[in-house]
Each structure stands twice: as structure tokens, then as C-alpha cells.
Design a protein around this nucleic acid. Structure first.
Lengths: 170, 170
DNA sequence: TTGGAATGTCAACAAGGCTGACTTAAACTG
DNA sequence: CAGTTTAAGTCAGCCTTGTTGACATTCCAA
């Protein structure tokens, strides 16, 4: 129990007493870990005129090249005015290209330019390095558990989005 | 491999291939899960004139009653001007009490009032409910892994703070 | 008694959320 | 074809929450 967990075994099943104290530790772990999670890209972005919002846009455009503005809006969960402000600067600065849709000319399809890919690389290298170190330190079983809990914590709508991205990736 | 993990066993040790794709899934899981993590308290706070910053202050004052402003500053990782703005409204609204230090009268010790405790309860009930559901769905082993990875993702300074809080709690 | 620490305050600013109103162009539909 | 809906973009204004810099107050400690 000195590790904060209390388990009993009954009928071959592992039961966990979810005390408020343990839940609070989980909450605080999320809080502090998220700070670490964003710290490295934030440092890179601080030197430029960009922030976390730009990072997110770049990340998901890279993840789903050719995505429409509307689709990106759903993934990011912000208003189009908010996204537009970010997108406009990225397009002006030549990091993102916006192409008119072929079948539906109302749509704009978003792509990273060469410069955009360069920045994306810098940002995700930094973020992946920390994630890789954490995964290595924690070990494969912990990594599996980590992802299981995170998925269970998402809203169902976000979880669907996450799954769709996951399937399109690997 | 259909779950996105690739493991081999060698010398009784489980090795994980940390492909960029798997790291990216971890990154996106953090992103989407954090949204879920904050969603419920955010909804409660939206009705009032408060935001996430107020929630964080209330949480840690409740966690460590009598904490000084400086200590809270270190935990939250913001500037004193930022914290002060939040703290001032909470004190004005009678949710937080600031007592001049006994031994060191420069220090202010922070406590939740009855109303402050009431709001803290509402907020953490909502947040704990989601965490509890996620922990229950994921199972005890996953929860252990979740915490292991999160701890490994923190900056060392934050990790110390987290540990100190953890030890003071249970 | 003087220096430094802890706290608080004022001003100004920026990022990044939000709402609401509106335009343009394209696509769909009766 | 006319009217409606949809995708995107824009303008204006607001809020929260972060930042820096400058400065005052209080009080401990050397």
C-alpha cells in the first residue's frame, strides 16, 4: 500500500479500491504530466511568434494531410474564428498551403509546406523524445495501461476521432 | 500488433519497439484525454465568473491548507501577478481566506472557507467521477501503468512537488 | 540599520479562447 | 431555375490567463 494502491485478489480478478486519495493522485499526475508534455514544444515556439495553438494545427495537418478546415475544427474542438487566426498566420508565413477542393470547391484542403514540415519535425522530435524516454522508463506494460486509461478518460466523441486518426496512421 | 504495440520477449524481458507512430498515438492520447479531464469542471466553472486557473488554485489550497502564496506559486508554475489576480477574486468572493503568518508575518497562509470547500467539492466530484470511471474501465494494472508513465513524463522539479504532495496526503 | 525576501499592486500587453453578425461562393434541392 | 444550405472567411468585441516591468510595503536577519 505504500505505492498508493490497494488491491485484493478475489476469484482470479484484481480489484482496486478507488479511494478519493488515489483518484486525487491520478488527477494531480495528469496536471503535472501535461505540463511536462507541452514544455519542450512550448520552449521552441516561444522564440517564434507562435504558440500551442499553432503547434496543434501543424500537428494535425501533418497527421491528416489534405484535411479540410471543417475537419480540423472538429479535431481541435475550437471555433473557426480561433482556428482561422492561427491558420492565417501559418499560411502567410508559408508553413501551410490551402488548396481549393477539386470535387467541392467550397472546401479548402490543408497541407504543410517544406518549411511547415521542418517546424513540425522540430516540434514533434522534442515531444517524442520525452514520450520515448517516459515509455522506455516505464516499460511496455505500463505503456499499455497508460493508453488504456487515457482512452477511457476521453469523451466518446473525442475517442472516435482519436480512433479514426489511429487507424489512418499505422 | 493490431493494437498498435509491437513487443518481443528476450531474456524474460519485454521489449517495446517505440516506433514514431506509437509515440504519436501516445501524444494524441494525451491531447484528447486532457480535454476530457478538464471538461467537467470547465462546464461548472463556465456558469460562474471563474476559469481553470481558479479551479487549480482551489484544488491545491484544499490539498495543502495553510500553504503560502509562494509555495502555491511553485506548485502552479505561474507568475505571482497571474496567481494574485485569481486569488484576489477568490478572497473577495469569500471562497478563500488569507491569514497573516504567525511566525513570519510577511507570509500569507491560504485556507478555503466553507463556501470554498463547497465549490471544491463540486469540482473535484465531477473530475473524480470521470477518473473513477476511467480507472474502473481500465483495471488496476492499467491504472498502475498510467501513473508510472505520467510520473516519467514530468520534469524532475514537478515530480518532486508531486511526490511531496502525495506523501503528505495518504 | 541596512539588505534582501515575501507579498501585493499597477499598468500594459499578448495568446487564444469565445459570441455574434455578415459575406462570398459553391452545392444541393424542390 | 430559385431558394436554401454549407464551407470558409472576416470583422468586431469580449474574457481568461498568461507574460514583463516597475514599484511599495513589511519585516526578518545579518
Amino acid at each position: 500500500m505504500d505505492d498508493g494502491r490497494a488491491t485484493i485478489t478475489r476469484g482470479g480478478e484484481n480489484l482496486l479500491f478507488l479511494t478519493d486519495e488515489q483518484l486525487r493522485q491520478g488527477i494531480e499526475a495528469m496536471f503535472f504530466a501535461y505540463r511536462g508534455f507541452t514544455a519542450d514544444p512550448d520552449r521552441i515556439l516561444a522564440d517564434m511568434a507562435y504558440g500551442r495553438a499553432h503547434h496543434r494545427a501543424i500537428h494535425f495537418i501533418n497527421r491528416a494531410p489534405g484535411t479540410t478546415v471543417n475537419n480540423l475544427l472538429n479535431i481541435l474542438g475550437v471555433t473557426k474564428q480561433s482556428l482561422n487566426r492561427v491558420l492565417r498566420t501559418l499560411i502567410e508565413d508559408g508553413l501551410v498551403e490551402s488548396r481549393v477542393g477539386k470535387s467541392d470547391k467550397r472546401e479548402r484542403h490543408l497541407f504543410l509546406t517544406e518549411d511547415g514540415h521542418a517546424l513540425e519535425g522540430r516540434l514533434s522530435d522534442a515531444q517524442r523524445a520525452r514520450m520515448r524516454a517516459a515509455f522506455r522508463d516505464a516499460g511496455p506494460e505500463a505503456v499499455a495501461g497508460f493508453r488504456t486509461v487515457l482512452e477511457a478518460m476521453m469523451d466518446t466523441e473525442m475517442h472516435r476521432t482519436y480512433q479514426r486518426l489511429k487507424e489512418s496512421g499505422a
